[in-house]
Structure formats: structure tokens, C-alpha cells
Design a protein around this nucleic acid. Sequence first.
DNA 1: GGTAAGATACCTACCAGAAGGTATCTTTCA
DNA 2: TGAAAGATACCTTCTGGTAGGTATCTTACC
Lengths: 189, 189
Amino acid sequence: MTDPSAYRRRKQPDLVRRTLLDCAAKLALEHGLGAVTVQAVSEAAGVTKGGLFHHFPTKQALVEAVVTDLLAQVEADIDAAIARDPKPQGAYTRAYVASTLSDPLLPESGQWAALHISIIAEPSLRRLVAEWLSARVERHRDTDSGPVLEMVRLAADGAWLACFLREEGGPVPDIPALRDRLIAMTFAG
Amino acid sequence: MTDPSAYRRRKQPDLVRRTLLDCAAKLALEHGLGAVTVQAVSEAAGVTKGGLFHHFPTKQALVEAVVTDLLAQVEADIDAAIARDPKPQGAYTRAYVASTLSDPLLPESGQWAALHISIIAEPSLRRLVAEWLSARVERHRDTDSGPVLEMVRLAADGAWLACFLREEGGPVPDIPALRDRLIAMTFAG
DNA sequence: GGTAAGATACCTACCAGAAGGTATCTTTCA
DNA sequence: TGAAAGATACCTTCTGGTAGGTATCTTACC
């Protein structure tokens, strides 16, 4: 948008870049991926289209950056949880469940879920997530394979999905209870 | 799509309408919801934009018709399964699991899943699905409530989601085995 | 049964706006 | 001073949508 005084404000490229990513995510989250246009994102970030294109060569690059950024956050979250876990066996699965069904995620968890859904709805982005996921599973194959652990992670996905769908009316499943039960199962297997 | 001879071909409104719905679904399924433009849909259906707008007053109407059509198919599938089930207790849950994880759905189940995902990714369409789902749950509350049955349906959702994400590389979970286990659980509860 | 009248189905041609993207200009920072 | 940060203006393409045409189908009446 036209802001003649924008020249004069302090240049904070990193912050602008972050803001662009956040705004893109927020738009996708609140109004669907279709609402993520170059115009809307740059406008929401208080920058012009030209500014956006300085940071991201193309729109695809922007949205891929959003995805990889999101995955990196989740990855860090999971790794931290694994590091805190004294028992290596099933640690990844526990971390995965906790991350997927975590409290900070949950209050507006539908929100984050919506973003994830938007992402995997797009074939091009789906690959990114699928590859990340399979890489993670492969990496923790020694400690986190077997039918029980796999089923636990699977149920976590389902719960996450359900909880997001139920967001507009309908009974929300008892996530904390389910989470505890799932984590308990990782010790039995 | 300029086809001067198109005037002369037989008029088959119902078939054209169906074709439009199918093509829209196929486009969403293969290239994401973003690929569903009135141009692309009408072209794929061998009709002009004007022809499409004769059947559907707006694009939104078209895509909502796709959704309700899809839900109607699933509903018929589930109802048929319930009718075949001798035991009323948990019949809906069994039908739901079977439908979600059914073989005819499974070979390219990623396909159908992708369509569902595309649908619930769009906030406006999500409501349709959520309402349908909660109406169904409410309708079978007498025979299909309780934590076990709910968890079973939840796990089915998760399996469906997982199996769809794993489609491009990565180990596909053993769906038939899981399905049998889930259905067995509906009798225990 | 034939035919005129009207509805239905579908096409052609267009539009206003928004999409992503580029080229080029200032301004700020190191 | 030179490179990075960001603004402005513009282009092309495609978007959903409309107006008005022309066929085909259906019904009513004789």
C-alpha cells in the first residue's frame, strides 16, 4: 500500500521477513490458503508488494518458507521433548503425541490444525510435510517402530484432526485424557 | 472452448451437471482446490463457462454441490452398511470405520482423502462437513456414544489421514489389520 | 399426428478487477 | 560509495461473472 513515509522508518529486514511469514500463516489459518495472496500478505505486514518480492523471489517461495518454518518449530519442540525424556524407547512417539496434542497448542489448536490442513491440502506443499515426516520416522526407527507405537502416533493424528473439525459445534473429545492414555501405551510397547 | 458444432449435439442436462461435479472433484483431488476454476472445470467437462453458469448460479454453489454430493455418497454407503449389520449397538461406528477404511476407497484412497482434505481446508466448506458429521453423531447417539466407540472413530480418521500422507514414499500402515482391530473394539464396548 | 409457443440448455463475446510478477526508482545502512 | 531495503508504477494473464444470442426439447392445442 502507499505509505510515503515508509522510506523513513528504520530498516529491519529480519523483522519484516518474520512479519511476512507470520502474516501469511495467519491469513491461511483464518481464511484459508486461498486468502494468501501477495497483495494481502504484504498489506497485512505493512509492506508493499515490492517489499515482499525483495525477501521472497516468488509467492511459492514465500509459502514454502512458511511451511519449513512451521516444521522447524515443531521439530525443535519435539527434539526438546526427546531430550527431556529419560527413556529412549518410544521417546519420539511420546514427544510426537505431546506436541500434537499439547496444551499450548490446544486452546486454539483448531487454528494450528487449520494451518496444517491448509498445507497438506496443497499437493506441492504436501510433499514437504510427507518427506519431513518420513525422515523423522526413519531417524527414530531404532527406538520408535513397531505396531503399537505407530498406532499411537496415528491416533494422535486422528485426535488432532477430529478436535479441529469439532471446533464449530459438536462435542470436543477429551484430549488430555486421550493424550495420557496414548503416552501410557508407549511404555507398554 | 469454441466449438461451433456444440449447438447441435444432444442436450443432456443431467449428465452435463454430473460431469461438471465430477470434473470439479477430480481437479481438486489432483491439483488442489486452487485448480478448481470455472474455466478449468467447464473446459474439463467439455462445456463453456456459460454452460457451467447455467447449471450453477455461482462458483460457490458448484463447489458446495460437490461437497454435498460427496457427503450424500458417503451417507448412503454408511446407511447401507448399518442396514446390513445385525447388531444395532455400535453399528454406526462399524459402518463409519468400514467406510473410511474400505477397500474400494483404499487403493487410491489417498485420492478420496485428498478431496476431503481440500474440502475441510476451506473454512466455508468445513462447516458443511462439520455439521453433517455432528448431525450423524447426534442421530446415532443411542447406539454409538461412549469413549470407546468415539476413540475408534477417531482412530479411523487418523489412519485415513496418515495413509493419505504416506502416499508419496514412506511406509503405509497396515490398514486392513487396523480396521479389523477397530471393528472388534466396537463389540467389546 | 402435426405444429406453434415457450421453456430449457448451451454458446459467444465481453467486462471489471485481482492475480503474480517486473523494472526502476529512492532511501537507508555499513 | 555501494549494496541492501523497500516503494512506485506498470504489465500480462487469469479470475468469476454478465448479456444476449442460438439451438434443442417439451408441452398444448388442433
